[in-house]
Design a protein around this nucleic acid. Structure first.
Lengths: 228, 228
DNA sequence: TCTCATAATTAGGATGCCCTTATATTAACT
DNA sequence: AGTTAATATAAGGGCATCCTAATTATGAGA
């Protein structure tokens, strides 16, 4: 029987969102945060001030927001919980990607360290979530992988799917159905005019993916020469 | 990415609490609810009105509160989630009773049906939580078992521990340490004066349990003649 | 340099849940 | 029947988070 309130949840959503948007420590416009959280810019701005007051981020007016070390630690802890739960939901409960993501979004807010660590152990200390995103370690920093959005590839280029940016549940559902998985081999066959849909060869199967979708598929380029 | 609010959580705590207190459909005084939730009677009263407005309970002034069918269904669904999580936390993650209970208290609010059902399946459709409390089925009503608090037994009487009333985390910790488990065989050896501590033989080991504690241990009486 | 879209802030509210203090109502016991 | 203790309600607030509408400040491009 715990306290009825959950003051921390909002805070966690902000931190997680900021961390997700700013993949490499760039400044994140408050507008983006508001959009991602589906709240007004006024509210987002308000909250940004509060979080700044708590030392979790720094706001440069008219530029954007950057997490402090504290804020980044908190954010990574949330991402860790989220992705560990995703592993559990996908591997042990056998749920589809969309549900995996949605449920993890809720579970991430109610896992204290003891629970998270026990879960980590139970799962065998996985390094990646089912969508291929790295799981931050209990302490220490997440090392960054070099990735390219599928949308940046030209015709003829090949790569391996590293991970799916999982900000959007709908998109996960879509990609799940099309068997786009971390590890999938992908090759651009054709790009429709005006940066349009991509025809790709995905694990040998022909598929068509819109540009929007392709932006969320992160690739490790494979050098054409040195592969079979 | 879900909405930031959790309007449902308070409601769930009330319903669950009421269901736990009123073991057999008795009227539950608002005072008890307030006490169990550690809030003022004014606040509890307010909320009771709200819940009545939503058709989840009926309040008879100066008497108490009774869940409607709707309210009871909601409450059992919460207990179901709570106890299924407890199974997972205890059996799969190997956590101690107190943590099992505390974590389940949080997890119970973030499990939609799809998640709960998948968990149920994964656990092999258990019938009881680690503390021996029955797990309500996905639909249908929980059948009630006949139980006697250990505190009601007289010297010489014997029984088997059916379950631990788990309203209180501290108590679980205490009983966990003393190896009081569902299925344990117990026999009252002595009752100290003024309804004081019980000396009991628990699975062959001598223990002393306070009356308060004994009230939370629910027993199935064993007829002295027909057992070895 | 000037203009304009973008970003920030101010003002005024709403909601949900909680609080204390004070006052009314009722049940239950003498 | 009358007193008292338990219960309920009313009045006035607080806090966290969100909202809209209106205003101000800024930076970036023409």
């Amino acid at each position: 029987m715990k306290e009825l309130h959950n003051f921390a949840e909002s805070e966690e959503m902000y931190l997680k969102t900021i961390a997700e948007i700013s993949r490499h420590g760039n400044l994140v416009p408050v507008t983006y945060i508001a959009e991602r959280l589906s709240i007004s810019t006024v509210s987002a701005s308000e909250m940004v001030h509060r979080l700044q007051g708590r030392g979790l981020l720094e706001h440069t007016p008219y530029k954007g927001v950057r997490l402090t070390d504290d804020g980044l630690n908190r954010a990574e802890s949330i991402l860790r919980r989220h992705r560990l739960w995703e592993c559990f939901l996908a591997e042990h409960l056998g749920l589809p990607w969309k549900q995996v993501h949605d449920f993890a979004c809720q579970l991430e807010h109610v896992s204290e360290d003891a629970l998270t660590d026990a879960l980590d152990k139970h799962l065998g200390f996985p390094s990646f979530c089912p969508h291929g995103n790295p799981i931050p370690p209990a302490q220490g920093v997440l090392e960054v992988r070099e990735t390219t959005p599928l949308s940046d590839l030209d015709v003829g280029q090949e790569g391996v799917v590293l991970c799916i940016r999982e900000e959007d549940g709908e998109m996960l559902d879509y990609l799940d159905a099309r068997a786009v998985r971390p590890g999938s081999r992908v090759r651009i066959e054709e790009i429709a005019p005006y940066d349009g849909p991509r025809s790709v060869l995905l694990d040998g199967e022909k598929q068509v993916l819109g540009r929007e979708v392709a932006e969320h598929i992160l690739i490790e380029l494979v050098n054409d020469n040195e592969t079979e």
